[in-house]
């Protein structure tokens, strides 16, 4: 990422995603709350696939694990897998219209939760409620706005390549 002018924008937006994810919310809203850090990370993966990849995803996921006091490696693995998926598909994704793009993002989120579900089940504490899967829906709905916002940010502050 040597060619970037202001890489702190990326860190700042990821930090903001973490803050958004940790807002104190009423319980009913919390299970619908999209996975902000992951969504922001997917955006930067799409925008700068040379800079952010599997390893960056793993590190960020580890940070999320520590932040939430969660099983170390749980989010790390999921973030890395999603990063790998984006690395394979970003060429096509970039040319999709926004609705189709958010559908793809929903697929990524679904995969993320499936892996998470497997991890939790192996550990003996599978989630018992459908609310576990709600963030896929809300993430899909939120994606276009997030995409437009972050693209504006990127065009303003980052000159890549």
């Amino acid at each position: 990422m040597a060619s970037l002018v202001r890489p702190w924008v990326i860190y700042l937006s990821l930090l903001l995603g973490l803050l958004l994810a940790s807002l104190p919310l009423p319980v009913w809203m919390r299970s619908w709350w999209p996975d902000w850090p992951l969504l922001v990370f997917i955006y930067w993966c799409l925008a700068l696939p040379e800079g952010l990849g599997v390893v960056a995803g793993w590190l960020l996921g580890l940070l999320v694990d520590v932040y939430r006091g969660d099983l170390l490696g749980r989010n790390a693995l999921c973030f890395a897998l999603v990063a790998g998926l984006v690395q394979v598909t970003y060429r096509r994704m970039r040319h999709y219209p926004l609705p189709q793009q958010s559908f793809m993002v929903a697929l990524f989120l679904l995969l993320y939760l499936v892996v998470d579900f497997l991890i939790l089940s192996l550990r003996g504490t599978p989630p018992r409620h459908w609310s576990f899967w709600y963030p896929v829906l809300t993430g899909m709905l939120v994606w276009p706005w997030l995409f437009l916002g972050l693209r504006m940010l990127r065009r303003r502050y980052l000159r890549s390549r």
């Binding site: 599997v54 390893v55 790998g84």
Partner: peptide, 17 residues
């Protein structure tokens, strides 16, 4: 290279967990 990195990361996470 990508799948190598992915495999490495998966193993690392599994070990960590």
């Amino acid at each position: 290279g990508l799948s190598l990195r992915l495999g490495f990361v998966v193993l690392l996470s599994a070990g960590l967990m």
